[in-house]
C-alpha cells in the first residue's frame, strides 16, 4: 500500500523505556480479528494503556500528556515475537512515523520498511542520551534526516548516523513499496518458476 513519503522528520519523541517490547504488547492477538486495516491504532499497547475496565492507566507513557510526537523512542530489541504487520499498522495509524531503538527484531523491521514507518537503529549510548533529553525536557525536538541518515537532538546538537539499505531508503523517500518492483519483473519470475523442480 502506498504511504506518505519520508525525508526529514522533526518532532518531539515519546519515550518507551522498556526492553524486549514484543508485538503482543504492541497489539494483543485478540485485536487482530479485523479483515480490513482499520482502527488498529485504538488498541496500540492496549494492555499497557488501559485497565481492564477500559479506563486509562495513568502511569503509561502514551497517557502522559507531557509526551507526544511522531517519533517513538523504545528500549532495545523492539518488536520481537509475532510477524503480525498489525503491530506496525497500529503504530503508523496512531501517528508515529519513526521508531528509534538500539536494536530491532527482524520481521518487525521489515514490516516497518514495507509500510512507511522508519526504524532507526542507533547506539545504546545515543539512545540513553535521547531518553535523558526527553525526560529532562519533553518538548525537545528530535530530527530524523533520512537523506543524510542522521538523527539529532536539537538542543544539544548531538548527532548520530544510522544505517539503511539503499534500496529501502529510496522506497521510503518516495513512498514506494516492493510490489511495484516485483510486478515489473513478472516475465523473469515466470521463466524462473518454469525451472523449479517441485
Amino acid at each position: 500500500m502506498p504511504y506518505e513519503k519520508f525525508r526529514i522528520l522533526e518532532s518531539t519523541g515519546v519515550p518507551l523505556e522498556i526492553e524486549n517490547v514484543d508485538t503482543d504488547q504492541i497489539i494483543p492477538a485478540r485485536f487482530l480479528k479485523a479483515t480490513e486495516r482499520i482502527d488498529f491504532d485504538k488498541n496500540l499497547f492496549r494492555d499497557w494503556r488501559y485497565n481492564q475496565d477500559n479506563s486509562l492507566k495513568k502511569d503509561f507513557v502514551l497517557n502522559d500528556k507531557n509526551y507526544s510526537g511522531k517519533i517513538l523512542v523504545a528500549g532495545k530489541n523492539f518488536g520481537s515475537g509475532s510477524s503480525r504487520e498489525h503491530a506496525v499498522w497500529a503504530i503508523y495509524d496512531y501517528g508515529f512515523r519513526c521508531v528509534i531503538s538500539s536494536f530491532f527484531a527482524d520481521i518487525f523491521k521489515n514490516n516497518c520498511l514495507n509500510i512507511g514507518v522508519l526504524p532507526v537503529q542507533i547506539s545504546a549510548d545515543f539512545l540513553e542520551l535521547i531518553f535523558n533529553s526527553i525526560k529532562k525536557n519533553p518538548n525537545v525536538n528530535l530530527k530524523v534526516n533520512l537523506i543524510e541518515q542522521e538523527v539529532s537532538i536539537s538542543d544539544f546538537s548531538q548527532i548520530e548516523k544510522f544505517e539503511i539499505n539503499p534500496y529501502k531508503k529510496e522506497n521510503m523517500m518516495n513512498g514506494f513499496d516492493d510490489i511495484d518492483y516485483l510486478l515489473n519483473m513478472k516475465s523473469e519470475i515466470k521463466n524462473f518458476a518454469a525451472k523449479r523442480p517441485f
Binding site: 510477524s83 504487520e85 498489525h86 520481521i107 521489515n110 510490489i179
Partner: peptide, 23 residues
C-alpha cells in the same frame, strides 16, 4: 522457512516472490 508480514503475503500472492536481504 520463515515468517513474513501481510505486505509480503500480498507480494507472494501476486508474484510468488519476496524481497529479502540475505541473513
Amino acid at each position: 522457512a520463515f515468517g513474513i508480514g501481510t505486505s509480503e503475503v500480498e507480494m507472494v500472492l501476486t508474484t510468488q516472490c519476496i524481497m529479502q536481504p540475505k541473513p
